[in-house]
Amino acid sequence: MTPLLELVDVRKKFGAVEALRGVSFALAPGEVLALLGDNGAGKSTLMKTITGIHRASAGRILFAGADLASHDPGQIRALGVEMIYQDLALARQQDVASNIFLGREPTRRFLGLPLHVIDRARIEREAEAMIRRLGARVPSVRYRVGDLSGGQQQSVAIARALTFAPKLVIMDEPTAALAVREVEHVLELVRELKRQGIAVILISHRLTDVFAVCDRAIVLRQGRTVADERVAETSMNTIVAHIVGAG
């Protein structure tokens, strides 16, 4: 099977600091991959390099046959890569519907003129449908996101990532700020994505989450991949040893 995502010797320098020193791995469609590592190991940098926020200094990132190096974040999203950021990346003064369609607002001609206005009715309709499909308890898509609870805000971020039929969803610490019950919902969501054939990269510090839903785990240390193991064939102790560098 051809991989959905393939990284070949990806490097990233910020000035003299080398945050990524050659990361290579491949991800199959529908595969759930855990990306592990201590703080500063390069996890977030790596993900932001995939989504186009950062540009790789060297190496290649291939997604569904396209070289992502020449794409900007909007184009990479259009190819089917979505990321749910740890800080959720929401516009708090905009309402729920606007946030779900951020960067992808459908437009229509205004009064038949060559003037394109945002199709507000369609956005609200489709956002409403998405929220209902997710079963998220957001009272109305017209509420400002800043007025919602933390869990509700996360639902909005998730809805945004899933509305446009992604092929790969990257989640950065999706369970870090959640209560136990909410964590279970996020994990169930990951399983559901897998069932639909959508690949997931999960960044998490919680190894129990990783062992509950992931197929494979990659460990980064000082910008390098130091382990790439099937979750079913390893143990938490081994993974921890890789993370702290005792392996």
Partner: peptide, 14 residues
């Protein structure tokens, strides 16, 4: 999709 009981329904006043 998955039901997510994310947070209580608090109707914030505009």
């Amino acid at each position: 999709m998955v039901p997510s009981e994310a947070g209580a329904v608090a109707a914030p006043r505009r």
